[in-house]
Design a binder for these strands. Sequence first.
DNA 1: CCAAAAGTGTTCGAACTACACCCATGT
DNA 2: ACATGGGTGTAGTTCGAACACTTTTGG
Lengths: 229, 229
Amino acid sequence: MAAYYQEEVKFYVSVDCIIFGFDKNELYVLLYKRTFEPLKGHWSLMGGFIKSGESVNDAASRVLTECTGIKDLFMEQVGAYGDVTRDIGERVISIAYFALVNMNDFNTELLKLHNASWIKVNKLPPLIFDHNKMVIDAMAALKRKAAICPVGFNLLPEKFTLPQLQCLYEAIYQTRLDKRNFRKKLISMDILEKLDEKDKEGSRRGAFYYMFNEEKYSHLLDSGFYFSL
Amino acid sequence: MAAYYQEEVKFYVSVDCIIFGFDKNELYVLLYKRTFEPLKGHWSLMGGFIKSGESVNDAASRVLTECTGIKDLFMEQVGAYGDVTRDIGERVISIAYFALVNMNDFNTELLKLHNASWIKVNKLPPLIFDHNKMVIDAMAALKRKAAICPVGFNLLPEKFTLPQLQCLYEAIYQTRLDKRNFRKKLISMDILEKLDEKDKEGSRRGAFYYMFNEEKYSHLLDSGFYFSL
DNA sequence: CCAAAAGTGTTCGAACTACACCCATGT
DNA sequence: ACATGGGTGTAGTTCGAACACTTTTGG
């Protein structure tokens, strides 16, 4: 391959992943304690260096699969972070991604293995480098995305209840929503499938399970519908 | 400085700038014909490699200043582009930024010097690499941004008329807007200053000039107001 | 006097908000 | 029987969408 750009400088480039989870009415981020220098022992996002012959997206996928054990998570780029001194080791340019995962799919062994924990987004500890800013930016990106695309379902089990779904959106938007208005809107969209089965965990009466109907949704998209919450 | 990451690979990292301009009811992008290999002679965005000791944002500012002659343009990151083969020379990871500029502030000599031209966004030629995608993504970013922040004014002269402003938003959103509704909304926001002077270019009758009042706007922001169009 | 763009109010319907009570069930 | 969360409908308001005519003035 011709060396066109010889006189230019090269940089380390990494990806950092903001992995969101949801459980018991709270949004969580997956954080871990660094096991290597610099800043060994400090809280950090999951990340990794981009390897030769690997696209930036592929690197993010790889890191996500490594630390969740799940392939093909929903993920989206947040942005590039390029301050000269953002990494105190050496200069590293990093590209942040957020991902959405169903916390119940998770085996706790993997967490232990990586020295990782789920931390409530409202109670973030100080993170290394500019990782706090990354999480904040990722939250904003999630809000924007969740308002116009039905991505929230990635944070829930396949079968979920409407109260659960409402709690999820309340956690994402950091606000309270009216129960009746929320249900009305969701049901009128006609993208959910109501099951006969009930979840009896949360209450004596039990709440009906629903499933997101991908097919209906993409059909509606074709006919000019767009999701908005 | 300790060499913590020695075993990792380094990459060329560049910035590419989507510079938007507006004139005579049309949105333009500043493009240039490459004067160096690879793909010399092809249409391309303005870009440049990140230099040692320079942050990614600084690199974008530098490139913008170099090719517009203007400092402190409004600019915002679009995202990182990291496909392995996106650059046919060698592997380069690129971070795209869009910027907004008043086309009238422009000296045509600089354009000549860089072999650059203003091209209508609706009539983009094929660009090198993934630059077409970058422009499309930048358009989307501009739409999103313009809907929630008064950034459009950066594309206009300091003094502008309401019909001009409306045309600008029509160009950004790629749609027609109702004259009366548009004026009503803008004026009710109370962020514009009406001047006594008229622009007699566009019509016999002439249209009153307005100016964006930064101070009023930031004052309103403090009291919970938010821009939305 | 005519062409061409600037400027101006009102009405209608859709969508959002607010709000309170009954239901089902396990203990 | 009661405590707990699940489920339902309506009225009022606000906001955006649609819409047509008058004004100004240079040529």
